[in-house]
Structure formats: C-alpha cells, structure tokens
Amino acid sequence: MAPRLSFAVIEQCALPANPITAILVALLLSVLFALSGCIRESDITLEQRAHQLAGELMCPICDGQTIDGSNAQIAIDMRLKVRDLLDEGSTNAEVKDYFVLRYGQDILAAPERSGFSLLAWIVPVFIVLGGVVIALLSIKSMRRSGLEAQSAGGTSTVVKQKQNDLSDYLAHVDRDLSVGSAIKSDESNKSGDAPSSEKAKS
C-alpha cells in the first residue's frame, strides 16, 4: 500500500499542471508518512526494540544524552531494565510508563503526544504549513504587482529608438562582452538588428 502511494507522489511531481500543488501534495504525504509510524515492523527483534526504546529515554545524569549513547552506569542499568521489561512482554508504551513513573516526564527524549506536550508536536505542523502558505501568498502578491508594472514596460519601437540613441555605447558594451562571452559569434549575430559582438580572437 505505502509504496504505491509513493509512486503517486512521484507522478504528481512529474507532469504537473501546477508543480506547486505537486510539491504541496508531496510534502503533505511525507508528513503523513512520517507520522503514520510505519517504522514498526512485525519481525523486529526484541533487541532492536530495546535499542529503539533506549534511544527514546534520556540518561538522567548525563547532559542531553539518551541511555542508548551513554556509558554511564545508570544508563547501562536502564538498558538492562528495558530489555528485561521487553522480555517479560511489556509493550513499548508500558516500558516508557515504567520509567516516567520513576524519573518523571523528562526521562522521555521526546515529549508525549498528549496534554500540554501535544503543543510541542502541533506547533511545527502549523509552522511548516504557515510557512508554505505565506510563501505562496507572497508569490501571488508579487505576481500581481508585477503584471501591473510589466504592462507599463517599453514596446519594441521604444527599444529601437533607444538602440539608435545609444549606438556608440552599445558597440562598446558589445566589445566588452565579447571578452567574456562563451557564445559563438554566429549565434549572437542573429539577435536582431543590434550591432553585435565580433569575436576578436578565435
């Protein structure tokens, strides 16, 4: 089921009527994916589960480390306890509750998804969605002001007129440009009636 979904995402990005929508869809889907907890596999070993849990429990005496990464004695003991609890058939939630009961909320490496701590999880969703919405709105407003400005732009006769006025300077510009230009002279010579760059050296 899930892999098929990801195909759909790719197709959306592929031939988009509007790639921005596709991006949004892809983003939303990836958020859903991540939140759907599809990492849990049935054939995962108890040991893998123990490691995973150890990565979600903080070491009470080390600054900012989980018990998975710490070599402190208490971390070693806690890792053993996690394994024992799993061997006895506890679920992941039960193991976490066991430690929360003894060490308090801050033993969990990530806040709970309930009560006040739910804020920690919800706010990022709003930040991301808000950011994308602001980006789209600002593009839209920049676009509107742009179209107005564009209509006031010069027509081709004005351009021609200017070209005549500035012909000396244009020739100079073209000389300057021919130094750095990587384009072959026959290509750029086709561009309109403007005096064009002669390649000085080949």
Binding site: D176, K190, S191
Partner: peptide, 21 residues
C-alpha cells in the same frame, strides 16, 4: 527560447549602454 533570449539580452545591453552613457 530564442525570442526570450534576444529580448532579455537586448534589454540588458541597453541598460548597460545607458549606464555607460
């Protein structure tokens, strides 16, 4: 596209020439 390219390039060349002036 070639048309866009020529139009943009000419606009920029004119802008450069105006500054040169």
């Amino acid at each position: 596209t070639r048309a866009d390219y020529q139009q943009q390039r000419d606009q920029l060349r004119i802008a450069a020439a105006e500054i040169l002036k």
